[in-house]
Design a protein around this nucleic acid. Sequence first.
DNA 1: TTGTACGCGTTATCAC
DNA 2: GTGATAACGCGTACAA
Lengths: 376, 376
Amino acid sequence: MENTPVFAAGIFGDGSGLQGMRCGSAGRRFKTENQCMEEKNLTIGDIAQALGVSKTTVSRAMSGKGRIGEETRGRVLAYVEAHNYSPNVVAQGLAQNKTFNIGVVMPGDSNISELPFFQNCMLGICRTASAAGYDVLISMVTGEDISQLERAVANRKVDGVILTRTLTEDAPMRYLREKEVPFVAVGSTEDNEAVQVDNDHRSACRELTDRLFAQGLRKIALIGGDERFVVTGSRLSGFRDAVVSQGGAEAGIRTDITLNVSDARTVEQVVERLVREETECIVCMDDFLCGCVLNTLQNRQIAVPEQIQVASFYDSTVLESRLPSVTSIRFDVEELGRKACEQLFHILNGEEAGGCTLLGYEVCVRESAGSGKTAG
Amino acid sequence: MENTPVFAAGIFGDGSGLQGMRCGSAGRRFKTENQCMEEKNLTIGDIAQALGVSKTTVSRAMSGKGRIGEETRGRVLAYVEAHNYSPNVVAQGLAQNKTFNIGVVMPGDSNISELPFFQNCMLGICRTASAAGYDVLISMVTGEDISQLERAVANRKVDGVILTRTLTEDAPMRYLREKEVPFVAVGSTEDNEAVQVDNDHRSACRELTDRLFAQGLRKIALIGGDERFVVTGSRLSGFRDAVVSQGGAEAGIRTDITLNVSDARTVEQVVERLVREETECIVCMDDFLCGCVLNTLQNRQIAVPEQIQVASFYDSTVLESRLPSVTSIRFDVEELGRKACEQLFHILNGEEAGGCTLLGYEVCVRESAGSGKTAG
DNA sequence: TTGTACGCGTTATCAC
DNA sequence: GTGATAACGCGTACAA
């Protein structure tokens, strides 16, 4: 008994118009005659032939579109199940002018404290996409280099795109606009036309700041990062909202705002100044900065919250093992990714989604500030 | 002068076999007659027609394969340039049984200190892939759920896969093996058949540990994470290599090894014990654990390195703002991603790549240990 | 050197 | 309810 290895000839057309007894006709690997690994590279044509029906019928059975006899449908589905056939999505795409891919733009130069955000956001996106039969194609953007995104778009590899970070002068967004590629932005943008999904940073930061004032604090400092990130602006607005609602300077409130702080050294200098000026509480725009602030205070032997309070406008896992635990705001980032993906699908289905979706937040008062052990 | 909007009719065949004067025949958007946005949805057929040559000729001009007249080639390329046409990669793929996508498997449940690793690894992969005309498709794996990977593979969305983390019982790897999907693993594996790219963790950890012994230390403790990660095993081996080379217990060397430590609370308990037992140095297998150890020591007012030394077997940015600076090992993770991607391309080109590629490392002796201010 | 005629795997149209 | 047939955009053996 010979098991002659048979090369899957005619892959790219062998000239003979023969369509006789094929076995994994689309195969690209070696196979043995009698035992063709059924699950692989089976085509709609193979099934049609095996069942003595037309390709059209098989297609209909699978898609559920068009009329088809209940029995025929059952037979096809049974065969499909038995040989666990799965359609070639690329070919489906070619026929429908779709790719079943969504692009996700990730910054390649984010700092530590932002990474959990992107990770969880990706998780939400991937799960939602996967459940809808889509795959996620990544483009990393570093600085002004959006070449990866350009490639993906120019090559028509994606049906739409999700932006996971928004800048005030956003190169990726400008590009997508220009090319008329459907996209959704995670994080707010100044472009009101754009579909965006974000947490309500402004309200969240206002609420947290309000609580600090409610504790009787009067000298609060704010340290923030890159001003070009739209979220920095939102948080700042929330902070100011709270200040204004308390009566501002007229009510004896003193604030000290420092933005564009990006490294530990700068934080150190700022903190030293703030301590000298007898600031009662330092509010940080993100956990990276907050970590730096805590380090500095620890090295200077300044007790938190007894001598100075500290709070953060973000709650990542960066600080989770810290003592004292840090008062901050918690967001459901995975949900953010999910929502963004759903919005994109809406657009793709022509159900033009709403402009801006705001998700909630949770203020977590912990030991470092606002818990009552105030120094103020 | 009317600019009648003309719907790109006949997308899926309008019945008329007409091939006359088409403008973006593959278009799916509205266009104006005279000013069809040339760069979009131009096909090889459009170009052929415009230039009065055959599609084959255009194809050849672009691919460089097959003989073609220098002048003809020039004309085609000029036209392509002028209208900045770019081929439909999906269609190319369908014709060549390729996708021009590589899959990347990411853990969806990694802890903070691992994230910079995955980020940089991705960066290396994406850049290499992009330069080779490939895109990166992400599959997130959480726990035993490899459904996203399964979808991508079953749907033939990828030509090959890169695994960014390896476990001793690796579900994704098992799956890829079974489906005979070409893959490369970042990180070592027990499967010797698999193509793998890794840093030489064993040598690196041995070298670092050797230095500690060279400082005269005799009581060293090791704290490690998940035992199922292959890298945990490698690092442990390196540590043991150093111990053995120093003569081990007979030479008066005491070691204390604790694995599967994953949370800050456990670290605290372990550290307390180690301090009681007058350990001279705590070596951490990664920076997350190291961060926890430093926190605990700081809270207990135990000075590093004066009272106890601390070193880490990994150098992420998690600890970069810490004081004292931590002695650890530095790897070029982006290079790791690059190499992995290159190896995958070798396999895809049939140039069966070597089994295991080991990349280098750099031991960074800083303040926290091995710098001379020993407590031992 | 160039063109013809398929084929890749699927969907959509239109007859039957 | 079912089946040819023509797209989708591109590559390629073979003929010219």
